[in-house]
Simulated assay, not measured.
Amino acid sequence: MDIQNHYYGHSSALANYCGMSEIRHIPGLLQHGWTVKSPVLAQFADFNDRGSNRKRLIWTSASRGFAMDGRENRFSDGSSMVTAVGAPFLYLLQAARDGVAVPKRTTGTVVLPVHGTALMKVSGDHEGFAEEVLRREGPSAVCLHIEDLAHPEIYRAWTDAGHEVISAGERRNPQFLGRILWMMGSAQKVVSNRMSTALLYAAAAGAAVQIYGPDFQLGENAETDPGLRMRELWPEFYEKSPDSAELKRIADMELGVQDMKSPDELKDLLGWNSRSVGAFWDYWASGPLEKAQAVLGLRKRPEGAHSGEAGLSPIHFLRHPLKHLPSPLPKLTPAVAVEPVRLKESGRL
């Protein structure tokens, strides 16, 4: 229904788990990242008036940040619009473990600074964070997001401090999640300066996790930045000496270990038991049109949706139109860990 269904190699991981020979369109929406509030508001709001024939597949039924039975997660008739299925990372991790394909923990520390997007910029002291990591961990591998790699000053802040910069690649690359699995599986410790999807992956994969460093501001409006809310809801991740077993328990819950489905169940929920002309049409035509209408203010989004983008004009979206438009479905890739891209010179992929 939307390109977000295929971000980060998620559809490839699920297709492998379901025994598919190719990736297909999904008649609905698949959560593409961990969220503090309901994915219905954080990720699905541009399609909020679609009926029950378009599923909303979220990761967990037990997040501290939102309840599945919340009003924002229900249709006007009171029926639930969301189904919890577990994060794609969990399925990839399980497949890699079953195939004895998880790398050994030979990497010291992997650092993932808070990153921005094409719409929401992050402001913060990368130089100061790089120096603090060097003092506390020594030279480390630093995974920079594709958006941050477009800023040479961010790349240089880390390399000048003696760290190696690596990347999982562009978010439409089907090997993205495999590269993240490599990092989370090979690192002895994973560090960030804020609670994040990657830290949950690391904790679930059994790595030591720690949060420290300058807290960057996400977006232009400090009031909509979820950083403080994260500290309030998940204080265990912000302790000076976190309990790894407790963090794994929380990560499993937030990622939806309890909601994982069998291959047949998941295949049915994804609409992959048969080909769908409707899903094809939604992906290439009606979905992009509805998103454009929501961005331009021609269709109303639910209250509280995309709060981090509050105050942005449509011009911000139109500056990067190709980032929001559909592209051919990604190729199916093996369910294995993939060594990340190692950047040696300019920092550009």
Rank of each mutant, 00 (worst) to 15 (best):
G256Y: 11
K261M: 13
D264C: 03
L266A: 06
L266V: 03
K267E: 00
D268Y: 08
L269D: 02
L270F: 06
G271H: 01
W272L: 03
N273T: 10
S274K: 14
R275N: 12
G278R: 10
A279S: 10
A279Y: 00
D282C: 10
Y283F: 13
Y283D: 01
W284R: 10
W284L: 10
W284I: 04
A285D: 06
A285P: 04
E290K: 15
Q293Y: 14
G297S: 02
L298G: 04
L298M: 14
K300T: 05
P302R: 02
E303Q: 11
G304R: 05
A305I: 01
S307C: 09
S307L: 13
G308I: 03
G311I: 10
L312M: 11
L312K: 09
S313K: 11
P314Q: 03
P314G: 05
I315H: 07
H316W: 08
H316C: 11
H316G: 07
H316K: 15
R319T: 05
R319D: 07
H320V: 14
P321M: 02
P321G: 00
P321F: 02
K323H: 08
L325W: 02
L325D: 00
P328I: 02
L329Q: 02
P330W: 02
P330Y: 05
K331Y: 03
K331R: 15
L332R: 00
P334K: 13
P334D: 06
A335T: 11
V336Q: 13
